[in-house]
């Protein structure tokens, strides 16, 4: 059968390790790909040429205006109670400090509630958040909202403990947001180790003074592109199964895991199908999003441009949680669609991954899912994901070619079968 042929080609056949090799070629050559950077545009051009060379159809770029934030030089030094140079990483969209930096005493808090209790002490201080890691979703609010909450009580900067379950003195960056009518203060992340140490120092009654310097700048929006390629359906060419990952990353590590690998297994899904000479009934469309990390900027542009055809989208798929050994496919859709997807997952028995779970989502496909289109995301072994996420550790060394083979095979079988069914997935 078709499913077995796809799996064999990806896992044991000529295509084994191809997605890993394609990814290493991209990220070793270009490195990280921050929104607005020349590196991201270079990556988009490389991918555009590669998709053409791969023989995919309708390869094209769709223009998007994207945020352009630059990190600049950064440093953080503890002056009291002892001299200690700390690892620091500015958060996306943060303003910089004045050229000479900010020297201020520290107020350590462990939650927003704790900050509000200590609000009267915050004026003129640098707030250090030492929030425990509960889960990414629960804890990331300290990164996104930490600066606003600190500024509201008069702080001059915010330092947020990195949102990670495990640290080997690694700062983890990510997006933060300002709020209208609240002063903008510099926001950066620090390591778990330094956040915990400052919490201990503060609880022992030491006064902590630090010097923070950040050269971050918010520049005018830049030109970028969503990268698109297709295998055009032979029977219902105007109907679409969308397969995707995002090509941009933060400016640290190589952006290999987040989300170069997701982008590459999505490409691989189309390559596997094409290599087998298969052509589904409806169109398989690969979209490599730009500026996901800045809040799904490229995917919003795509949604606004294409939503008029929303009734023609059978399924939207995004891989943005790593490409480690797959555990399940997460799916959001009607009960009828779920029953169909459960049947499709049975085809993945040779991969030993037949679970269909609720909660299919992704920053770039959520616009479609919220509008009623069935959506699917790859769930893999997440034990390592948030340890490397948005850090210098996000490199090829995290990835395993054999696990990527399995992820690509799963992705290709699901995309192909849904695209080849006689009918689109039913909606509520």
């Amino acid at each position: 059968g078709v499913a077995k042929a796809i799996i064999n080609l990806a896992v044991d056949g000529k295509a084994q390790n191809r997605s890993y090799e394609r990814l290493s070629l991209l990220v070793d050559t270009v490195g990280p790909r921050l929104s607005g950077s020349r590196d991201l545009e270079k990556a988009i051009q490389i991918m555009y040429r590669s998709l053409l060379e791969d023989g995919l159809q309708h390869v094209h770029l769709e223009p998007v205006r994207v945020p352009h934030w630059e990190r600049g030089e950064e440093s953080l030094i503890m002056l009291e109670p002892r001299i200690h140079t700390m690892a620091v990483m500015g958060l996306g969209s943060s303003i910089g400090t004045p050229p000479n930096g900010i020297t201020a005493p520290v107020l350590v808090v462990n939650s927003f509630e704790d900050l509000h209790k200590k609000a009267l002490e915050a004026l003129g201080k640098i707030v250090v958040y030492n929030q425990p890691f509960v889960s990414y979703q629960d804890t990331v609010k300290y990164r996104t909202r930490g600066a606003v909450q600190a500024a509201e009580v008069g702080a001059v900067a915010a330092l947020v403990r990195s949102v990670t379950p495990l640290s080997i003195y690694s700062p983890h960056t990510g997006m933060q947001e300002y709020q209208e009518n609240v002063p903008k203060i510099p926001a950066a992340c620090i390591t778990v180790e330094d956040a915990e140490m400052m919490a201990r120092m503060a609880s022992e009654g030491h006064q902590i003074i630090v010097h923070l310097k950040m050269g971050a700048r918010n520049l005018p929006e830049a030109d970028s592109f969503n990268t698109v390629a297709e295998i055009v359906g032979w029977k219902y060419p105007d109907e679409v199964v969308l397969v995707s990952g995002h090509l941009d990353s933060w400016d640290v590590g190589q952006g290999a895991m987040d989300d170069g690998a997701g982008a590459v297994i999505s490409w691989e899904a189309l390559s596997l199908i094409k290599d087998l000479g298969l052509r589904p009934k409806r169109t398989l469309r690969l979209v490599l999003w730009t500026a996901e990390e800045q809040g799904g900027i490229g995917s919003l542009q795509y949604f606004l441009l294409h939503k008029k055809n929303i009734s023609k989208y059978s399924l939207v798929m995004e891989s943005d949680l790593g490409t480690f050994l797959p555990i399940a496919l997460q799916f959001t859709g009607s009960e009828e669609a779920k029953a169909i997807m459960k049947n499709i997952m049975c085809l993945l028995q040779p991969l030993n991954t037949t679970q269909l779970l609720d909660g299919g989502e992704g920053t770039d496909i959520n616009y479609w899912i919220q509008a009623g289109v069935p959506g699917a995301s790859l769930l893999d072994d997440l034990s390592k994901y948030f340890t490397f996420h948005h850090s210098q550790g996000d490199t090829m060394s995290v990835l395993n070619p054999k696990e990527m083979n399995v992820a690509a095979a799963l992705w290709a079988v699901v995309a192909y079968v849904v695209a080849d069914l006689e009918e689109m997935l039913p909606r509520d």
Binding site: A339, N343, A371, G372, V413, L421, R427
Partner: peptide, 24 residues
């Protein structure tokens, strides 16, 4: 949001299951 084509679907879930099984 609605897909008109499906609302007049000719296929039952059982028929869909048979169709999917053919990809094994």
């Amino acid at each position: 949001k609605a897909i008109r084509r499906y609302s007049s679907s000719r296929k039952t879930i059982q028929e869909m299951e048979e169709e999917i099984a053919s990809y094994r």
